[in-house]
């Protein structure tokens, strides 16, 4: 569970703020708003990559600022917009990096770790990709591998920065339905930013909308397409 309490988010000057918002496990939250309004910044703040300006962010009841570097990766995983460019890393190896928070100082993969890795691979149905180099995968396949890494990480919270950005229509649908199922079956709290509002409406009824005028983040449940667009983009 993520709780935002009167949080002001941004770099030196605040760009985005909110009243109290609670994000529950079992749901997928779609974060929408104009370009440059601070969606990525919000996700990075929740994942402690950027400091909060004021207010509080709690994950599982603990203030993000006070969660240690060792503990954070067991609570929260983050899928960035761009898949890292790497030579000679096989998908399975990339997914196994999700177990790093649990392995010892030498990184030894235990029986339990390999079970989690296999489980993540089969949950996404990417057995056929697991032995391939990530540099040879298509954008859609990379996204699935990145999500599998997050699942292997076994965190109650998964944040994804525009996971559908570079995908074609069918891959967008595939990724969204996998995330929806993951949230429901594994009881995770998933937050993703996206610009495909129409498509996302088919998969989730929980929207985090950044208002274009007030720059306030609001949780809209079961919103209408028009409601989202008028708030986020100032258009009707």
């Amino acid at each position: 569970m993520i709780e935002l309490k009167k949080a002001h988010i941004g770099y030196s000057e605040g760009i985005l703020h909110c009243q109290d918002i609670q994000l529950e496990c079992g749901n997928v939250y779609i974060l929408v708003g104009k370009n440059g309004i601070g969606k990525s910044t919000l996700l990075k703040t929740i994942s402690k990559q950027i400091n909060l300006i004021s207010g509080q962010i709690l994950i599982d009841g603990k203030e993000v600022q006070n969660v240690s570097t060792n503990e954070l990766p067991k609570l929260l995983s983050f899928v960035p917009v761009h898949f890292p460019q790497m030579d000679y890393v096989r998908s399975r190896e990339f997914i196994s990096a999700g177990r790093a928070p649990y392995t010892n100082a030498l990184g030894r993969i235990t029986e339990e770790d390999s079970q989690e890795i296999e489980h993540a691979i089969s949950a996404l149905g990417i057995e056929s990709l697991s032995e391939r180099f990530t540099s040879e995968l298509s954008d859609g396949e990379k996204q699935l591998v990145a999500i599998a890494k997050s699942i292997a990480q076994k965190t109650p919270i998964i944040l994804l920065d525009e996971p559908t950005a570079f995908l074609d229509y069918s891959n967008k649908k595939k990724v969204l339905s996998i995330l929806k199922e993951t949230a429901a079956v594994m009881n995770k709290c998933i937050v993703l930013s996206a610009h495909d509002i129409d498509l996302c409406l088919e998969f989730s009824s929980n929207f985090l909308v950044v208002n274009a005028d007030s720059k306030e983040l609001q949780l809209q449940q079961k919103p209408s397409r028009l409601g989202i667009i008028s708030a986020a983009f100032n258009e009707s």
């Binding site: 990559q49 954070l72 990766p73 983050f78 960035p80 890292p84 990339f94 990096a97 990480q153």
Partner: peptide, 10 residues
């Protein structure tokens, strides 16, 4: 995996 991902993995 890059500096940011590495940090996020502890």
């Amino acid at each position: 995996l890059g500096q940011d991902q590495a940090r996020l993995l502890g």
